[in-house]
Design a protein around this nucleic acid. Structure first.
Lengths: 225, 225
DNA sequence: CCAAAAGTGTTCCGTCTACACCCATGG
DNA sequence: CCATGGGTGTAGACGGAACACTTTTGG
């Protein structure tokens, strides 16, 4: 290959993933202990280096797949983090991505194999390098999205109750919402469909299960929460 | 220095700047003809490579300074662009930034020296690599910001008329707004101060000149447009 | 005197918010 | 029979949108 930009220096580029999940009414992030030096043993996001043969998005998807075994996750870029000394080993520029997963889809054994766990975003430890900053920014971006686009369903099972959906929304936005007002808004969105099924696990009376109809949404995109 | 991440490949990282200005009622972007191979002669954003000794933000600031002679511009990261073949020369990952400048502050001779010009964002030519995509994303981000934060003043002279401010807002959001409603909202923001001065250049009657009071804003941040 | 831009309030409508009680069931 | 979470409607407040005429002055 012809070299055009010979005189400029190259750097390592990595991706770091902020993986959000919804567990026990809490918005959680998947983190683990770092397995490499420098910083071995510190709490850290899961990440990896970008290879020559893949785009940054591809790298993020690969890393997500390595960790979760899942493809086609909802994923968005958070931004590039590039302070000179952000990595104590050597210069590494990192592109952060956030992803949403339904924790029920996540194979427990894979989780153990990678030594990662769900931690309430409100109780995150100090993490390696600038990872806390990445999570903070990702969370803000996610909050903005969740009121405008139907991404919440990515964090829930296919069938969910309205109470679950409300709790999720509350956890993400970190504020309580009125039950009746919330349900009124849901009713206006025809693509959130009530099924005949009843969930009895969380109450004696049982709660109707709902489903997000993606096709219906694509035809009339009027999401608003 | 100890090498920790030896086995991974490194890539070139550049920054590209989407510089917005407001000229003749139009939202414009500063672009020029590329001076390097590959792609010499194509329309392009202004950019540069990130050096070992500087953060990505520093690199963007340096590049902006090189081009405009101005420091402390309002600047925000748009994101990382990293398709494998985005640069036909060799692999380059680029971090895009957008910046706002008051075109009156921009030295004409510097502009000529770099061979860049203001082009209406509605009439942008096809540009090098993924630069059109960068502009598109930057514009969307700027639109979201301009209704929530007082960044519009970065695109105007210190003293401006309400009509100017309104035209700017319309150009950025690409929609007309009602004059009376617009002015009503302005009146609610005490940090947009009317001065005794009158601008006579754009009308016979003359229009009051206003000023953005940053200190007053910092004390009570209730911006909303 | 007229063209051209500056400046100014009110009404209406829709949206958001606050709020309390009955229902169904398992234990 | 009671504790627990599920489910429902209305009224009042608020904010956003629509809308038209007067003022000033240079040419």
């Amino acid at each position: 290959m012809t070299i055009f930009y010979n005189e400029h220096s190259k750097v390592l580029v990595s991706v770091d993933c902020i993986i959000f999940g919804f567990e026990e009414g809490k918005l959680c992030v998947l983190i683990g202990r770092r397995k490499l030096d420098p910083g071995r043993g510190q709490w850290s996001l899961y990440g990896g280096f970008v290879r020559d043969t893949e785009s940054i998005d591809d790298a993020a998807n690969r890393v997500l797949f390595e960790l979760t075994g899942l493809r086609n996750l909802y994923m968005r870029q958070v931004g590039a983090f590039g302070k000179v000394d952000r990595d104590p080993g050597e210069r590494v520029i990192s592109i952060a991505y956030y992803a949403l997963i339904n924790t029920k889809d996540y194979d427990k054994s894979l989780q153990e194999q990678h030594g990662v766990e769900w931690v309430d975003i409100k109780e995150l430890p100090q993490m390696y390098s600038d990872h806390n900053e990445m999570v903070f920014k990702a969370r803000r971006m996610m909050q903005e999205k969740i009121s405008r686009e139907p991404i919440s369903f990515r964090l829930l099972p296919t069938l969910f109750t309205l109470t679950q959906l409300q709790r999720l929304y509350e956890a993400v936005c970190d504020e309580e919402v009125d039950k009746r007002n919330f349900r009124k808004r849901i009713k206006e969105m025809d693509f959130i469909e009530k099924t005949e099924l009843i969930d009895k696990t969380s109450s004696k009376r049982g709660a109707s299960l709902y489903r997000f109809n993606k096709k219906a949404y694509n035809e009339e995109q009027n999401f608003k929460l």
